[in-house]
Design a protein around this nucleic acid. Sequence first.
DNA 1: TAGTTCTGCGTATGGTCTACGCATAAAAGC
DNA 2: GCTTTTATGCGTAGACCATACGCAGAACTA
Lengths: 253, 253
Amino acid sequence: MAAKKDDSGPALPPAIESAWGLRERPPKGPRPGLSVPGIVDAAVRVADADGLTAVSMSRVAKELGAATMALYRHIGSKDELLLLMVDAGYGPPPGPAAPGDGWRAGLTRWARAERDVLRQRTWLLHVPITGPPITPQQLGWLEAGLRCLDDTHLAESEKMSVILLITGYVRNEATLTAQIAEGSRAAGVEPGELMPAYGRTVARLIDPARFPALHRVLTSGVLNQDDDPDDEFTFGLDRILDGIEALVRRRAS
Amino acid sequence: MAAKKDDSGPALPPAIESAWGLRERPPKGPRPGLSVPGIVDAAVRVADADGLTAVSMSRVAKELGAATMALYRHIGSKDELLLLMVDAGYGPPPGPAAPGDGWRAGLTRWARAERDVLRQRTWLLHVPITGPPITPQQLGWLEAGLRCLDDTHLAESEKMSVILLITGYVRNEATLTAQIAEGSRAAGVEPGELMPAYGRTVARLIDPARFPALHRVLTSGVLNQDDDPDDEFTFGLDRILDGIEALVRRRAS
DNA sequence: TAGTTCTGCGTATGGTCTACGCATAAAAGC
DNA sequence: GCTTTTATGCGTAGACCATACGCAGAACTA
């Protein structure tokens, strides 16, 4: 039996193939009124407006003026739709940094770009990740990150680990700040008032003798002053980059 | 009007109060056949056996030989149950490190302990976190982490940031390795065969001219060798600790 | 013994995803 | 131009899910 053209791997979900433009329209049959990008755009619009929990198949279909089951002609399952929503939600990666900038400035720029996206679309953080990146934009972001490390002498595996480390940090930090915003909105208090209230609650619950270190943190008033979330972000990122810098220096010699 | 005893904060969910032992049984009425710890234990048993998606109110009730709605007498909502499941799932924090050990050895121990828990109970990673830690065990882990930094001269806010940084890293790393395991089980391939297959798929999709850095990673064969996930974990953790060490040194002088 | 109060649970509502099958529209081949 | 082929849109229906509400009865106090 002759080898087919694209037989070299496990079958990709149809929607992924269409995201890479590998799917030509079959010559016969009626014109499709819906398209994968159209469906994904509608889903993203719903998520932007009312959050990820509002994204149901029927809601997206209503957004398009179509019937619920019409979507399943183009998309295999809701999980597949979510995957494509993440791809569209991230958008294109940031362009390359200025030529003179080093890897550290480049990665900082890259990390801030991701944080900005996640701050704009917090629903991205609620999509359960089911596997390694496979969609065009996702791999584009990965590529952009890796390129920042081109001039270093890190091993390829180390570059990969570094990128994973940073994107993990960004996602984590974005999750925490989003939780504070969401929590204060749910509780109906000022955003700056949530952490002090939390501190008071914890202080009431814990026994200072059994939780001395935590008690010290609470009485230090850290939670009372609402510091710039940007400072918090920069603090952690700089610690990580410091650690990476030590490795880069070691590999350079 | 006289001040009541525990009026100093917003009302806590009843289940949280009972987790802190703040809830005495009312003297009247029939003996409750169910208890909050019993329900939580049953839910944890279900999650351990069949994953978090199997945890539905009816399934937990069936586990207890009770009716679905019986649970709502003890627990306000499913989210509340999930919160308590996380608390029980984590279990007690690791004990204090040996007196001679420094902060770095202590934090390493602490981080590995959390990783071990998350490796054992991957469903913990799928519980959507809705707020800062408020349950006894969660705060116990936080306390144990903070104590590792007792001998440093970091500011209290910096200690907090450091702990957040590390726990975020551990969660992220555990999520990634759990995804690989889950993905290979779902695809029915050997765990060591998933990443190479992923690499082949990506290599087929991307254009080397547009994704040069990524192409280089793929052709370097990083994904083909299945390295010890422990090495991967240690690599990232050491980078972070290197960065923290630089800060600790700066604050010591 | 009477009264009170809390427990367990049955019923019912409205939501979710999605498997299946039918009528129809559009193109290809003769 | 007519027939055949094929894919499309969508209606119906099933199997789940969380949970609001209200009732019968048990266990305690007085």
